[in-house]
């Protein structure tokens, strides 16, 4: 056959090239820890810390994307709602408001359902975002099914630390999600695979992505999605062991040198009306009457 030797050159070239490619160059994939195994590791791990003040906080900057691994090597603490692996951060001060985004992908039918806890400078919880306020996102063809949430805050004495963990209540729930096969059927107009959607187990371990982005000085860089979870939920004493809820007025004491109007401007530039309103509310509370009216004027002036 004439063709046989003609085939040899391109075929061998390609196979050679493919063989070269087949050496895994990328970092080895960390396998998913089965939910039960993760739960056992959590149960047998000792509590690292006696109080919220003694957690191992590490600093993050105002512009960073972190992949957080909640593995049996991560520290463990009981936040009053069950023991959990956690990661703790010191938020960047003097940078103005930041947007915080959390993405927790569903992998092998399980995920890490995070609760976000914001502490003030005195290690008192001031805000809690439980996992059930995160939204389930369908797989898009570019990323898998996942939990996602965004919120914004202004680091300072009122919001100094961020702790990410998974409460017992988080872990009891499951997340129903759209399978890749169903997503494919939907976008191609195919008959959808029969049966109910799969449910992801909430495991004690897992990997999430934390993205923090500065809102000040970077106008329009991070327009926040409208999917922001409901604002501040203050933990009750029963939820948070030995920690008294922070009175709303506590904010006042730290706000003397706080330029609310500059922050509101930054929020408006970033397109975050929700943050602007929140800031205006806080300004009103902390002795800056008229801020809300001022904001309304600004909005009216901006709007065509």
């Amino acid at each position: 056959m004439l063709s046989s030797y003609r085939l040899a050159v391109p075929l061998s070239t390609l196979l050679f090239a493919l063989a070269g490619c087949s050496t895994p160059l990328m970092a080895p994939h960390s396998p998913t820890i089965p939910a039960q195994q993760g739960q056992q590791a959590l149960a047998s791990a000792p509590d690292c810390c006696t109080s919220l003040a003694s957690l191992p906080y590490r600093p993050i900057s105002a512009q960073e994307t972190l992949t957080l691994d909640f593995t049996p090597q991560a520290p463990v603490h009981d936040f009053g709602d069950g023991k959990s692996f956690f990661q703790a951060f010191t938020l960047p001060r003097n940078n103005g408001p930041v947007a915080i985004s959390i993405t927790s992908p569903i992998r092998d039918g399980q995920l890490f359902a995070p609760t976000l806890l914001v502490l003030d400078a005195a290690f008192q919880p001031v805000r809690q975002v439980p996992s059930d306020s995160l939204r389930v996102r369908r797989p898009t063809g570019f990323s898998s099914a996942r939990l996602e949430g965004q919120f914004s805050l202004t680091p300072g004495p009122d919001a100094q630390y961020l702790v990410i963990y998974s409460s017992e209540q988080d872990r009891r729930a499951t997340t129903s999600y759209e399978s890749e096969a169903k997503a494919y059927a939907r976008v191609r107009g195919l008959a959808e695979p029969p049966g109910p959607d799969p449910r992801a187990v909430h495991a004690a371990t897992g990997t999430i992505t934390l993205e923090i982005a500065s809102l000040a000085g970077n106008a329009g860089l991070t327009p926040l999605a409208a999917a922001a979870p409901p604002p501040a939920q203050r933990p009750t004493p029963s939820e948070s062991q030995g920690v008294a809820p922070t009175p709303a007025s506590a904010a006042t004491s730290h706000s003397a040198d706080f330029d609310y109007r500059r922050m509101i401007d930054a929020a408006l530039k970033a397109g975050d009306i929700e943050l602007a309103l929140e800031l205006a509310d806080r300004a009103e509370r902390s002795g800056h009457p008229g801020t809300r009216a001022w904001l309304a004027e600004r909005l009216q002036a901006r709007t065509p």
């Binding site: 004439l2 063709s3 369908r138 898009t140 063809g141 939907r186």
Partner: peptide, 22 residues
């Protein structure tokens, strides 16, 4: 592009495939 009396053929190349939806 194989000959009319060929009984085998070889091709090679590259392709992308994608689907998406929100």
């Amino acid at each position: 592009n194989v000959d009319f009396d060929d009984t085998d053929g070889l091709t090679f190349g590259a392709q992308m495939e994608v689907w998406w939806g929100s």
